[in-house]
């Protein structure tokens, strides 16, 4: 008999609502809003209520993909990073810093968002950075 609730933070936006994921026999089966969280006080929006559905979705990307001859193809991280870095470099040289923009995510940590803006501003030299929560 293996049932537990695991306290975690919703990844859908920057609010930081706390929730319990219900885990039975190692599989996530449900979401319960955390009543003692000072952020959401036992409430969630429709996205938060359904977090358990995406975590184990077979539709999630688990490896980087590159479009080759019109088809998305799984590639290694090295290949994906080499391709991205060389394309950013060549676009930057040909069209200037502000021809490149970055779109970051609510589903990553503050620190990762900090790193991406640092990369955009310091490495590429553009202020063109935005966030998926504004879409």
């Amino acid at each position: 008999m293996d049932y537990k609730t695991v306290l975690t933070t919703c990844t859908y936006c920057g609010c930081g609502c706390n929730m319990y994921l219900e885990v039975m026999d190692g599989r996530i089966t449900g979401t319960i809003p955390c009543k003692t969280s000072p952020i959401n006080e036992g409430k969630l929006c429709i996205k938060g209520w359904n977090v358990h559905e995406f975590v184990q979705s077979p539709k999630r990307l688990t490896r980087p993909m590159l479009r080759k001859n019109g088809d998305l193809t799984e590639v290694t991280w090295d290949e994906a990073l080499d391709f991205t870095a060389s394309r950013i470099k060549s676009i930057k040289e040909k069209h200037g810093n502000d021809s490149i923009a970055f779109l970051t995510s609510a589903k990553v940590t503050n620190e990762e968002n900090f790193l991406l803006q640092k990369f955009a501003r310091a490495a590429v030299g553009t202020n063109n950075i935005d966030h998926c929560a504004r879409l």
Binding site: M1, Y3, K4, T5, L7, C34, K35, T36, S37
Partner: peptide, 11 residues
């Protein structure tokens, strides 16, 4: 647990 109150299955 950890300052929060959570549903728990005591075995």
């Amino acid at each position: 647990i950890d300052g929060h109150i959570a549903p728990y299955l005591f075995c």
